[in-house]
Design a protein around this nucleic acid. Structure first.
Lengths: 136, 136
DNA sequence: CTACATGCAAATGCTTTGCAACCTA
DNA sequence: TAGGTTGCAAAGCATTTGCATGTAG
């Protein structure tokens, strides 16, 4: 089942992984690109995208498909939930226990074969909450 | 809080709404465009996007931001959950009761102000399940 | 040595937007 | 008639890809 996956550890790949592991902010590919560029000025955006994809397939990091248009990345490959700011898009961890029984309710109620679920909380980050309050 | 919203019911808007209400398949903007074109051959894709946006803001339909890259639309404006095929992207309703207490667990555990949550099941539709089985 | 990886630039896919003409209330 | 709406085409944004060159194992 798991396809053969490339394992060559280039400087670019190593650097991207290190940068990601140094942040808890669930950055987008572009944000990662900007950070990596400080260490490897000649790296290309395409390389960043390709490596994030490879690292995610290797199970070393996690690609997040949350609401909104852009994908974000998490150094923590283990499944956990997130909360996203509806105003600025910022993402944080949502430390609640995994809902393992959720699928049980669906069995028999859908013709799909159920694999799992994605849960994401929505809200406002402290900065945006503050900014909203001031506007009044 | 709710901004002033346009209420002009053009033929295009009416047709888009009717088409959407005739399907349970949670179509994308492009799929809706193709259907509407059979009745209004000169309609433009931009008009379809604009009207879907307007109808969603009016609370008459619902815009779905699920996994994957494209947005889908639901004639049913009421909050409910969905299941998405990981293979072909097809979307169906996931008829389970709303999890109203979910946010309670998060209170105190996050610095965000919590508004709500988005839950989506993932699986394989009957067609893709069948196709997978045949491949072996 | 060679298969995988890179940099670059062009291409893709979905969605949004500027604008002049048009139409609904 | 005024202001929302349309069709058209071009632009926007995130992401992917083709290709010649480079490099890790």
């Amino acid at each position: 089942m798991p396809e053969k996956i490339s394992r060559r550890m280039t400087l670019q790949r190593k650097t991207i992984l290190n940068i990601l592991r140094q942040t808890n902010s669930h950055p987008s590919a572009d944000e990662i690109y900007e950070s990596v560029r400080k260490q490897l000025p000649r790296i290309s955006l395409g390389t960043v995208y390709r490596n994030l994809e490879v690292l995610a397939n290797m199970g070393i990091i996690q690609k997040l498909e949350l609401g909104g248009t852009i994908k974000r990345f998490d150094w923590n490959p283990n499944k956990h939930y997130h909360i996203r700011c509806l105003c600025c898009g910022k993402v944080d961890n949502a430390p609640i226990a995994p809902l393992n029984k959720l699928e049980d309710e669906l069995y028999g109620a859908t013709v799909f074969s159920i694999i799992g679920h994605r849960l994401e909380f929505e809200g406002f980050c402290p900065d945006c909450t503050k900014r909203e309050a001031q506007k009044t």
